[in-house]
Amino acid sequence: MFHWLEKHPFFFAVGVFVVIAYAGLIEIVPNFAQASRPVIGTKPYTTLQLAGRDVYIKNSCNSCHSQLIRPFKAETDRYGHYSLSGEYAYDRPFLWGSERTGPDLHRVGNYRTTQWHENHMMDPAKIVEGSIMPAYPWLFKNKVDLDTAYAEQLTDWEFFGVPYNKPVPTKDGGTITVKMGKSVAESHALALAEAKKVVANMHNQDVKDAVARGEIPEIVALIAYLNSLK
C-alpha cells in the first residue's frame, strides 16, 4: 500500500493530511465550550485596561513574564491562588507566556501598587537591586492608542458577546457593570476618568499634566491593566 501511495502523490498527500489532521480536533474540540465560561468574579476589561494590555503585548512583556500560576505549593505561596480556566474567558489573546525570566504576573494586582509600578517601570534596577528587566521610560511619553483599544472592545462585544454594559456577578454575591462607550468620544471620556484615578497615585508630573490635558500616556493604561490582574 505504501509503495502505491509513493507513486500517487495526490493520495499520498491526502493520506498525510488525514493522519495529521484529526489529532487537533480531539485535543481542542471536546473542552471548547467549557473553557469559554468565565468564573464568578471575572470581569471584562475596560477600554483603558485593554489599551494597557495592548501596551503589554506591544512590548512583548510576555516574552519574560508568565500569567499562569500552576498548582504547586511553591507557586501559590509566591503568587497566590492557582489560575482557573474561567479567569481567562476575556483574554484574547491568552498571555500565559512560556518563559519566566521575570516573575509571574497573573495576580500582580494583589501585591504591587500603582506607585510601585511607576517607579519600577521607569528604572527596575533602582527599585529591585540586580533586576535585569529593561527600563521603559518611553511609556511615560508615548500616548496610548485608545481608539484601537475601543475597536478591540467593540469587536469583543459584537463578535464574541463579551458582556459590556451588563451586570456580571462578583465574588461577594453582588454584580458589577463594566461600561463601554457608545461612541469614540464617550469611550475616551470613560478612559480619561479611569486614568485620572490612576494618576492620583502617581508622582511623575509630566504624566499628571498630560492626563490633565486629556492625553493618556501608555504607562497609565499599562498600570491600569496590571492593577486589574488579581
Binding site: 491568552f94 484601537t148 475597536a151 457608545k182 469611550s187
Partner: peptide, 30 residues
Amino acid sequence: TILATSPIGETDIGAWYHSVSMYAGTNDAL
C-alpha cells in the same frame, strides 16, 4: 477590528491592521 462598528454607527476606528483572536484564554492556549 475594522469590522467593528460602535453603537452609534462609527466605523474605521483605530489601527486598521489590528485584530482580536477568535479564541479566548484556555482555548486560545490550546
